[in-house]
Amino acid sequence: MNEQLHQSHTREAFYRRDRRSVALAREFTRNALADWEIADRADEVLLCVSELATNAILHGVPPGRGYALRLCIHRDGVLRVEVRDSGTGDLRKVSTPYRDLDADSGRGLLLVSVLADKWGVGERVPGKAVWCEFMVGYG
């Protein structure tokens, strides 16, 4: 275990409702993973960040607002990714990712549910938080 990770570390960023923010969220995550010396599962984490950020933009962020991306690595090796928005989405719809697999879109949460070790959605006031967790190695 990396000596710098004896306690949990958290990073958070806020993004406006803009498609370009997805690339910024990925870069933010890539830098945090490098700083924390997390090498394994980076591709899976980055794909999940992309999907959660895209869903926030498309379904969770009202015009003129934004979303927050929070990354937290715990000393037990759990990396938690959380995207919080202020939209009024139907939490039941968010928590059931299995949609029409032949559709051109709508498989983002299905990917998250397959790639992450755990995932879920929670209510916030206002809005919701969609999260996923990964067991990761260091250095």
Rank of each mutant, 00 (worst) to 15 (best):
A68P: 03
R92E: 01
D35V: 05
Q7R: 09
K93G: 11
R20Y: 14
Y98R: 12
P63R: 14
E27H: 11
L33P: 04
G106R: 12
R17H: 11
D35Y: 05
T54F: 15
S86K: 03
R17G: 15
A39I: 00
V22H: 09
D100M: 07
H74R: 13
G60K: 12
E44P: 00
E133G: 12
L79A: 00
F14N: 14
V125W: 11
Y98L: 12
F28I: 04
S113E: 04
G66W: 07
A13K: 10
N55E: 01
A39K: 10
P126Y: 11
R92D: 01
S95I: 01
G108C: 11
G77R: 02
L52F: 01
R19F: 07
R19S: 13
V121Q: 14
L52T: 02
V81Y: 04
A56Q: 06
A129I: 04
V112T: 02
L33V: 07
V94I: 14
E44C: 03
A25P: 01
W131E: 02
A25L: 07
R70Q: 07
I73T: 02
T88L: 15
V112H: 03
V83C: 05
L52R: 04
G66H: 08
V112D: 00
R70Y: 03
R124T: 13
R26Y: 05
L109C: 09
V49S: 01
D90Y: 06
G120L: 11
D90R: 02
R20K: 12
L91N: 08
K118F: 14
R65Y: 10
W36K: 04
I57N: 06
V112R: 06
D85H: 06
L115G: 09
C132T: 10
G127W: 12
G89W: 03
R84M: 00
P62Y: 13
D43W: 15
R70H: 05
G66A: 09
L79Q: 00
E12F: 01
V81A: 02
T10Y: 02
L33H: 07
A34E: 12
A32R: 07
D40V: 06
T96F: 08
T29G: 08
V125F: 10
F134H: 10
A42W: 01
D117Y: 15
S21L: 04
E37G: 14
D43S: 11
A25R: 08
S105A: 15
W36A: 07
R41M: 05
R92Y: 09
Y67C: 00
D104W: 12
S50F: 03
S105D: 13
V130R: 05
R41I: 10
C48E: 03
V112N: 03
I57W: 12
L69I: 02
R11E: 07
R84F: 04
G87I: 00
